[in-house]
Amino acid sequence: MKSIPYLLVACFLSLPVCAQEFYFPQRNAAWESKSPTAFKIDSRRIDEAVNFAQENEYSGSRDLRIAILKGFEREPFHEILGPTKKRGAPAGIILKNGYQIAKWGDTKRVDMTFSVTKSFLSTMAGLAFDNGLIADTDDKVVNYIWDGIFDGEHNSKITWEHLLQQNSDWSGELWGGKDWADRPPKEGKLDEWKFRKLNEPGTVMEYNDVRVNVLAYALTHVWRQPMPMVLKEHVMNKIGASTTWRWHGYDHAWTEIDGIQMKSVTGGGHSGAGLFISTEDMARFGLLFLNNGKWENEQIISKEWIKKAIEPSKPNINYGYMWWLNKKGARHWEGLSENIYYAAGFGGNFIVVDIENDLVVVTRWLEPNKIDEFMKFVNTALN
């Protein structure tokens, strides 16, 4: 046995040393690439996936102001309240163990990322948890935010977890946005929806940007800092992200903390604003999660938080703490690992984390209903 190399023995015994090391790109340095064949991945199949992404561009206008107004035209009172930006062509990156094995389009271009922002916002809650600013996600938010936004018989029951899982049914108005007017049901009268009976917090998931913005507001007060500053200091600087990303709020979304006016950001681009970011910076964020919150030798986000963030919620098996989960539910990608989780945004923006295969896939401006088909192309290349 002594004559057998230690690494071979470790692999046989499934010890951690056998795992392939991850590569972490340095700030402003060229991202190191490797051929897919270096990982026994079919290059031809990867090329097919890239071609598919390029050929299935999101059908909405490249002028995102127009695309937003068209996409949410059913909503009463909907209007553009924050910055927008014309988008580029399809772009993307596929990482294996951190190495770039495929890329397409302009991966340095900064574009709106819409609800992918929610997964960044969720991470701000995670950092608050890790730093003891939030003791428990089951705590009622009214015990932290007492300015009236969580007052009342219903809203006072809401916990941090309810907000993170989008099952709070918070009722009210913030920055001019009315909870009931956000994505109303396609059937029935709006007045009926406005005066509906509220669901008990934690029982029904409803995708709702007003309530996500309530979470951003609450976290801004807990941190006593604007969310972009928290993200920059605690995450983006540490993972070597560029200086090009921006996180916007609505033009009028100001709150005063410690005598200082601070912008409360949005968790998406539903009415403009949200995170504007490059494909490469999105890939860095995905790589951080793939490596369980650790970048090189520094644990940036706790493993405990990531485990909580990707645990299915009771009302929706496909949703955790603002991450979509590939469990066997309504949004399951058939034939792909149930351990895949991802951030998703309007217009076909995705950060996909494939734990079993050590992959991060970022694709932008892909027709949203084509994402599972695209991921099947990638998965076929692995086999």
Rank of each mutant, 00 (worst) to 15 (best):
K308I: 03
G132D: 07
P25G: 08
W180K: 03
I4D: 07
A241V: 06
G272W: 06
R44Q: 14
D136V: 04
H252R: 13
T266A: 12
H154G: 05
E79C: 02
L190Q: 09
T255A: 10
T84L: 07
E334I: 12
A19H: 12
E233T: 10
S242L: 09
F276H: 14
Y321F: 15
N349D: 01
E296N: 09
Y319K: 13
L288F: 01
G98Q: 04
P184G: 02
I317E: 11
I351W: 00
D136M: 06
A125L: 12
L163F: 13
H221L: 10
K34A: 03
T243N: 15
F346R: 08
Q26K: 14
G286I: 08
I134L: 07
V214E: 03
L190N: 08
S59T: 12
Y321K: 08
D47G: 04
G259R: 11
K294D: 01
N291Q: 02
T159R: 15
Q54M: 15
M262T: 03
N339C: 00
L95R: 04
L64I: 13
T137R: 12
K307P: 02
E187A: 11
A181E: 14
L121F: 02
L127I: 15
G126Q: 10
D209I: 02
S156D: 09
E200G: 00
G202L: 09
P184R: 05
W333A: 14
D138S: 14
L15Q: 13
W104K: 03
S242A: 06
G269P: 00
H270S: 08
K85H: 07
Q166E: 15
G176T: 10
M262W: 01
P76T: 03
N349T: 11
I340C: 06
W170P: 13
P90M: 11
I239A: 07
H270P: 00
F120E: 03
L163E: 12
G274C: 08
N316M: 14
E57I: 12
T244V: 04
I68V: 11
